Amino acid sequence: MGVTEFLPGVPDYSTAHEPVGDLFQLVTSRSDWVPMKLSEAQIDQFWRDGFLLNIPVLSHEQCDKVLDDYKYFLGQESHPGMKMLYEYHSNQSGDPNNVLMHALGHWRLTKHFHDLIYLPQVVVPSSQLLEQGRMSSVRFWHDQLFAKPPKHGGNVAWHQDYSYWTRTAPMAHLTVHIALDDQTEENGALKYIPGSHRWTRDGGKPLPVTDFNFKDMESIKTILTEEEKASFKPVCGMLKKGEASFHHPLAVHGSYGNRSDSSRRAAVLNYFKDGVCSNTDEEILSDIRIPKGEKMEGQFFPLVFDPVCMEQ
């Protein structure tokens, strides 16, 4: 599938289901895929804690290429294809003292964001973590950008990702958070609650969403059990530039505001196991519908990794 245009002279990269730029070198042999794999100890840690931290996925040079595309979404410039975005919030909190830029769908707009979803250092571990005990074929769900400016960057409230994703089923999802700047306590690093991927309601449902505006860091505690509140002990990721965390769709995570002198920018990639279906006849993403019960696939949900390539 080749690249087609959204507008004259404006490519829509969602029509290309392979890398199209120079972010990384293509992997062409089994021997090149194998070093991307996680160890058994790392996989065990993921299933014990619900997350895995500090996995190197990008060099500083690669991060800088991605950050060069970031300017279209931070008010410095405006990409002519902004209408392709599924969502765009220059400040999702609405509070000028707690600014959180949040966008979805930018993989359609630039080559570097498009190719990031195929990054071997991301898709191979994702294949290992989507299903316990075996490697799975991986499909792309959607991407996100989060940017917290210096001094007045906002919070991302504690939540479980699948609470927002029940329009797809079964739950076989994974989130990859890539730090494009060093993350510290002061600039709003991502934090996790170990073991919270086992926190469910009513036979396996995720926790209810308690804050749609990503502001209130305490609201989640209103729906936790006493046991859950007692084990609510955040672990700070402290990701370095170019490192990623991988987390379970039910892992409770969030981040506090940025009061440092530096930016805190991140690119987030969300995946699901091939075979996940639509669970609604309503919109899956902005202007995108897949009838309930039908497989999630096609232009907007490409297959990004098939473990059969490891055998060739």
Rank of each mutant, 00 (worst) to 15 (best):
P208Y: 01
K273R: 12
K37V: 01
L38C: 10
L26E: 12
L7C: 04
H112K: 07
H114R: 11
K215H: 01
E283H: 15
K191I: 13
G154S: 10
F73G: 05
F24P: 08
S31P: 02
Y86M: 09
M101D: 02
Q160C: 03
T175Q: 11
F113I: 00
G293F: 12
Y86W: 14
G293M: 12
F24I: 00
S90L: 04
F212N: 07
R167C: 13
L52Q: 08
K295N: 01
L174P: 12
H248K: 07
S31M: 02
K295G: 07
N187R: 10
W107P: 00
P8R: 07
H173V: 09
V66Q: 05
S93E: 07
E5C: 12
Y118N: 04
D22C: 05
Y13P: 08
Q76K: 15
V156Y: 04
G188F: 07
V124A: 05
F214P: 05
W141T: 13
I117A: 02
S137I: 02
F300I: 01
C63T: 02
Q42G: 00
S260M: 03
L67G: 09
S255D: 01
N155D: 14
A16I: 12
G2Y: 12
M296V: 02
P234Q: 04
N270I: 04
E61I: 06
D95T: 05
Y164K: 00
E297R: 02
H248M: 10
M1Y: 10
D306V: 00
S136I: 04
M171F: 07
L224V: 06
V304D: 08
V123I: 11
F73M: 09
P302E: 00
P19Q: 06
D22H: 05
R108F: 05
S136R: 04
W158R: 09
G9H: 01
R265L: 04
A189P: 08
P291A: 04
L285E: 13
Q128W: 00
D306A: 04
F46N: 07
Q45P: 13
G204H: 06
Q312F: 14
G105L: 02
K83V: 03
C236T: 15
F46D: 05
